[in-house]
């Protein structure tokens, strides 16, 4: 009877243990894994440079995934985990570059392009003369074609 109670008492723990996932040497809950993946998706693999560290097969990417997961388990805020990476590898590690003096031109580009295009369009429109009316010969040719 005593054994049965013990088994019953341990059941939730067992269920919980089954829910845990292990990735890159760190065991964590599915929620923590989702959180870690969201962070890793925003970080560039330094070896392949066009893949996120979640997608990359490079060894360094695996080590960085492990570090992210350890910090997630320790309850380190997402922002601090990103800062950990930026401190070591620079803002290039962020797949989405932050708005900073270095990237102002990049982020201003759509607006600049729209302004330039709009200016060119209005200048072209302003000076455009209405087309000359068709001559008799042209009208006759048009009627023939239609």
């Amino acid at each position: 009877m005593r054994k049965l109670w013990l088994a019953l008492a341990l059941l939730p723990a067992l269920a919980l243990a089954q829910d845990m996932v292990t990735r890159d040497g760190v065991t964590l809950t599915p929620a923590q894994e989702t959180q870690a993946e969201a962070i890793g998706d925003q970080l560039r693999c330094l070896v392949c440079q066009n893949e996120s560290i979640e997608d990359s097969n490079a060894k360094l990417a695996g080590q960085l995934r492990g570090i992210i997961r350890q910090q997630v388990v320790q309850g380190v805020p997402d922002r601090d985990i990103m800062n950990y990476m930026v401190q070591r590898y620079g803002i290039f590690v962020l797949l989405k570059p932050p708005v900073s003096p270095l990237t102002w031109l990049l982020y201003a580009m759509p607006v600049l392009a729209l302004l330039l295009g709009g200016a060119a369009f209005f200048l072209a429109r302003r000076n455009a003369a209405p087309p000359a009316p068709l001559t008799e010969a042209e009208r006759a040719r048009l009627d023939e074609l239609l």
Binding site: V47, L60, Q63, L64, I67, R88, Y89, G90
Partner: peptide
């Protein structure tokens, strides 16, 4: 284990 390398920002 490459830990110091990561702290230095070594990527290869």
């Amino acid at each position: 284990d490459g830990t110091t390398a990561i702290n230095w920002g070594v990527y290869g």
